[in-house]
Simulated assay, not measured.
Amino acid sequence: MTSPQPADRPAARVIAALEGVGVRRSTTGQVILDAVDWTVRSGEHWALLGANGAGKSTVLRLIGALMFPTVGTVEVLGHRLGSVDVRELRAAIGLVSSAQKVPQDATGHTVVLTGATGTVQPLWRTYDRAARERAHELLAELDCKELTDRPYGVCSGGQRARILIARALMPALHRLPRGGAPELLLLDEPFNALDLPSREDLIDALHRLARSRPELATVTVTHHLEELSPAIGHALLLRDGRVQARGPVEEVLTGARMTACFGRPVEVSRHEGRWLARSARS
């Protein structure tokens, strides 16, 4: 029996919802996604998993308001794609990708500031004292305030990832309520090419972020279960553009379901909130 929700805790809000979503490549008719149903609520932290070509990046682009479905509906932060100015909607979504363009000589503080204007280069006349202070606070929250004056180009991969997360959480000027912040954070393979210490630092930072921001919803695309923080409570498995499984991690990240998703025998184990997947030996 489900315990009643405390009276002082608001019900979880729908942050993103896909219903009957399909995506076809316009030039070839190739099916990228087929009949995808999925809902992300406030405070939920999702892992999005699947082999290369499964459709993970397409799903992330849909809920990031970067593309439209061929069929079905996509709602993000209470707005249906196709009936809202997506430029305004994107300002309320934090996106972190290794493909982001960042000036190598910009300091950590400057990179975070550009999140307020959604620009690659800083618009110095736009940032008031409150914005500059908020950028400092976000660097401290991601445990990288020592990178304030360090050029982005000389930072390690893990340090860059944390700077980009701080940037993604920077309130967009004139587009979010004053003092507000993105309610949805999308992480597109944030651990790409990180060494072990950098990976663990980033996992720790994401775990702390989940605890300090109870309303924030996150979606993390990754290829490795070892990269999931203990905060991840839900998982979506994709194969060939179709949903293989979705729901609580305990129900989804099983050997049987991972085997069906990736097409080879996979063993899955969990220790103190951290996951491990490896090829099953006969």
Results as ranks from 00 to 15, higher is better:
Thr28Phe: 03
Ala193Phe: 00
Pro190Tyr: 00
Val14Asn: 09
Thr70Val: 07
Gly115Trp: 04
Arg13Asn: 05
Arg211Ser: 13
Ser156Gly: 06
Ala256Pro: 15
Glu44Ser: 10
Gln100Met: 13
Arg134His: 12
Arg239Thr: 07
Ala166His: 04
Asp204Phe: 14
Ser57Glu: 05
His271Asn: 11
Gly118Met: 10
His45Glu: 01
Arg242Gly: 08
Ile203Val: 15
Ala131Trp: 04
Val36Met: 01
Ala106Asn: 12
Ile163Val: 13
Thr119Asn: 10
Pro6Ile: 12
Arg13Gly: 01
Leu142Met: 13
Ala65Val: 00
Val268Phe: 06
Glu19Gln: 15
Gly273Ala: 10
Leu33Arg: 07
Val71Asp: 14
Gly241Leu: 09
Asp34Tyr: 09
Ala51Trp: 11
Phe68Thr: 11
Glu226Pro: 04
His207Ile: 03
Val221Asn: 00
Pro4Leu: 07
Val86Trp: 07
Cys155Pro: 00
Pro248Ala: 11
Leu66Phe: 12
Gly157Met: 13
Val219Cys: 06
Leu185Lys: 06
Thr117Ser: 12
Gly157Tyr: 10
Leu237Arg: 04
Arg208Ser: 11
Glu267Tyr: 10
Gly180Ile: 02
Ala166Asn: 09
Gly22Met: 10
Arg246Glu: 12
Val268Leu: 01
Gly82Arg: 00
Arg213Thr: 03
His79Phe: 11
Arg178His: 05
His79Ala: 06
Gly273Asp: 03
Arg178Tyr: 02
Val31Phe: 00
Ala47Lys: 08
Thr107Lys: 08
Arg24Phe: 15
Arg13Leu: 13
Val243Asp: 07
His109Ala: 15
Ala168His: 05
Glu133Trp: 06
Gly115Arg: 05
Trp38Asp: 05
Ser156Gln: 03
Arg87Ser: 14
Phe262Leu: 08
Cys144His: 10
Leu147Asn: 00
Leu164His: 00
Arg90Ala: 08
Trp275Gly: 08
Ala168Tyr: 07
Leu139Pro: 06
Arg274Gln: 04
Glu19Lys: 14
Gly43Asn: 10
Val21Lys: 02
Glu75Phe: 11
Asp204Tyr: 06
Arg24Thr: 14
Arg41Val: 04
Ala106Tyr: 15
Leu184Arg: 04
Val111Cys: 01
Gln104Trp: 13
Glu226Tyr: 00
Thr220Met: 14
Lys145Trp: 11
Arg211Cys: 14
Lys145Ala: 13
Lys101Trp: 13
Thr117Ile: 01
Ser269Gln: 09
Arg274Val: 06
Asp105Phe: 15
Leu113Lys: 01
Ser269Trp: 03
Glu250Trp: 01
Thr148Tyr: 08
Asp149Gly: 02
Arg160Ala: 02
Glu75Cys: 12
Glu88Tyr: 09
Leu209Ala: 01
Arg246Pro: 01
Ser98Tyr: 08
Leu113Gln: 02
Thr254Ser: 14
Trp38Pro: 04
Thr222Tyr: 03
Leu66His: 02
Leu123Cys: 15
Arg125Gly: 13
Pro177Ile: 12
